[in-house]
Simulated scan of single mutants.
Amino acid sequence: MLDRLFVPLVFIAAIGTGVVGGVFYAFSTFVMTALGRLPPVQGAAAMKTINITVINPLFMTAFFGTALICLALAAASFAWPSVTTARLVLAAALLYLVGCIGVTVLANVPLNDRLAAVAQAEEAAVWARYLDVWTLWNHVRTAASILAGALFIMALTV
């Protein structure tokens, strides 16, 4: 019974973590590099626009919907009949919740807020540090999301 209820959620979580990881992968591999090649004021302005437009139903559903599914799966993992599957599901869920959601809330969003609040005269100085630090934390989110997806897929195959 538990498998019939939660296996579809594991499948959806695998897709969700992959989608979110793919978005972050794009930023880590070329978007931030491209923004960094722009004059600082233009790069900062583009990032500010991205930070506003990312708050939309499609991305937020993938991002936070996956988190909600991960919470449910983490709780359900304690009742899962297969110990191996339970451990994989719990590890995947925690990896996404801590490495993606946690890092976003504690690192990337405060950096975004700082960039949004800075006066245009200070943007160039803030932008250089923002670019390096934000991208570093985005690498963490990317790896956490993709690895969580891989663990969810492994859980479906054991």
Rank of each mutant, 00 (worst) to 15 (best):
L156R: 01
F27T: 13
Q120S: 13
G43Q: 07
A44P: 11
D132G: 00
L131N: 02
A46R: 02
A45E: 06
V89F: 00
A116P: 10
R4Q: 11
T66A: 07
L131T: 05
P81K: 05
L9E: 01
A93H: 02
T29S: 11
V158P: 14
N51Y: 05
T29A: 10
T33V: 13
R37Y: 04
V10A: 03
R114I: 02
P110H: 03
I50A: 14
A26P: 08
R4H: 09
T29E: 12
V23F: 08
V54I: 12
T66S: 08
A86K: 09
P40I: 02
N56W: 00
F30T: 05
L90M: 10
N56E: 06
I15C: 14
V31Y: 09
T49C: 12
T49H: 14
V105H: 04
A67H: 03
T49Q: 04
D132A: 14
V54A: 14
Q42W: 13
S77R: 10
R129C: 01
N51M: 09
N112P: 13
L88H: 14
I52D: 06
I15E: 06
A155T: 04
F6V: 10
D113G: 11
N108R: 05
P57F: 08
A13Y: 01
I146Q: 03
I52H: 13
A125P: 08
A34K: 11
A26I: 08
L151E: 00
L5E: 12
P39M: 03
L9A: 09
F24A: 10
V7N: 09
S145W: 02
Q120C: 06
I153L: 13
T61G: 11
L156S: 00
L5A: 15
P81F: 09
E123T: 15
T29R: 14
N112C: 06
N112S: 05
R129F: 00
M47L: 04
I153S: 11
A119V: 03
W137C: 09
L95P: 01
W80E: 07
R129H: 12
F30W: 03
L156M: 09
S82G: 09
A86H: 03
L94P: 10
A91G: 08
W80H: 08
V103N: 01
L94A: 04
I15K: 12
N138M: 00
